Simulated scan of single mutants.
Amino acid sequence: MKKYLLAVVLLFITSTISFAQHKKPALNIVFIGNSITQGVQLADAATEAPPATAVAYLQKQKNLDTVSFSNQGHSGYTTLDFLPGTGTFSKVEDAANAFTNKDALLIFSIKLGTNDSAIHGPHGAPVSPEDYQKNLKTIVDKLLADFPKAVIIFQHPLWYSPNTYNGAKYLQEGLNRLQSYVPMIDGLVKSYATTNPKQVFVGDTKAFAYFEKNHLTDLIPENGKQGTFYLHPNKKGAEALGKFWGMAINKVVRRNFK
């Protein structure tokens, strides 16, 4: 009888441990970005902007528990606007602290670079590739210092048409500069692999080519100083971008935080 009871107890303990080990992770995500992240020109940014559609995708994934998020996208902002010490950075940290589930995995999803790449107009533009990387590192270092268990995911920047020229001037020069930021992101992530293993990752890398190919259907035609240009996702494009981000985030979580 004693042996039977002992076997039952051991089975219960083993089952409990196994359940704990396979508990689905809950996520708290702060999306950092510019007007694309913010969802400007969308009818209902709260539900249609890429962060909302990314979370809608994540909430359908069977390997995840609850997913909460905060959209900290700001139109026209560059990496300089998000540096520690700015009001914008404080709002990012306030958003991270405001989540109610303190046991959830905290993720900062960062998609910056469009405004940095401009010839002139946005704060600090044009930002050199080296300064762009330096600014990102300054932001990430502070986030990791204040949230030691947080995960950072860099989404690659998006394509825009080479005649983009609204209040700010981008054009082909800006697009070339934007593409020069990509190896800076990838190199920065690689450097964190030794100092902060499993904390800083590259996220989406596919959206740039997707929007270049599908800009007539997924980006909003806008009147500019050099004709109709394409920069901001429409509803269809925001849903596609959100799925790209969601897939990238889930891939990081699934591979590293089971």
Rank of each mutant, 00 (worst) to 15 (best):
N234F: 04
L171T: 07
T228M: 05
H120L: 08
K206H: 13
I32Q: 04
K134N: 12
I36M: 07
P25A: 00
G246V: 03
L106H: 03
N63Y: 10
T14S: 13
G73H: 07
S90M: 13
P233I: 03
I107A: 01
N250D: 10
N115F: 02
F99H: 06
I13N: 03
Q61G: 01
T86I: 04
D44S: 11
F211Y: 13
K149R: 14
N223L: 10
R255T: 00
Q155H: 15
P126E: 04
Y77G: 00
F201L: 00
A104I: 12
D44A: 08
L64G: 01
K60Y: 00
P51L: 09
I32W: 00
Y192Q: 05
V40P: 01
T194D: 13
L219A: 04
L144E: 05
A46T: 15
S191A: 08
K2R: 15
S68K: 15
K258D: 03
Y181T: 10
L216V: 11
S18L: 15
G242H: 08
I139E: 12
K142Y: 07
L231C: 07
Q133Y: 09
G167R: 15
M184Y: 11
F12H: 07
I29H: 02
A96V: 09
I29P: 07
H74S: 12
H74N: 13
L178F: 01
E93S: 08
K134V: 09
Y230T: 06
T66F: 00
K190M: 02
A209D: 15
I249S: 02
V140R: 09
K137F: 02
S90H: 13
V182I: 15
A145Q: 15
H232D: 05
Q21H: 13
V8L: 14
Q155D: 15
Q179T: 09
Q172V: 09
P197K: 11
N71M: 08
K60W: 00
G39K: 07
L241N: 02
A20P: 04
P25T: 02
Q41T: 14
K169N: 11
K213N: 12
F201C: 00
H156Y: 13
N34H: 13
Q61W: 00
T66K: 14
L144T: 04
M1C: 02
G227A: 03
P50S: 02
G174D: 06
A46W: 13
G224V: 10
S90P: 02
L175R: 14
I152Y: 01
T164Q: 07
I119H: 04
G73N: 05
W245F: 09
A240M: 10
A98I: 12
F31P: 09
D81R: 11
N97W: 09
S180V: 05
A168R: 06
P183M: 04
K2I: 10
G167T: 14
S191G: 03
H74Q: 15
S191I: 10
L105R: 12
K102L: 05
S68P: 06
N28G: 04
I185D: 04
W245V: 06
A96P: 05
N196D: 12
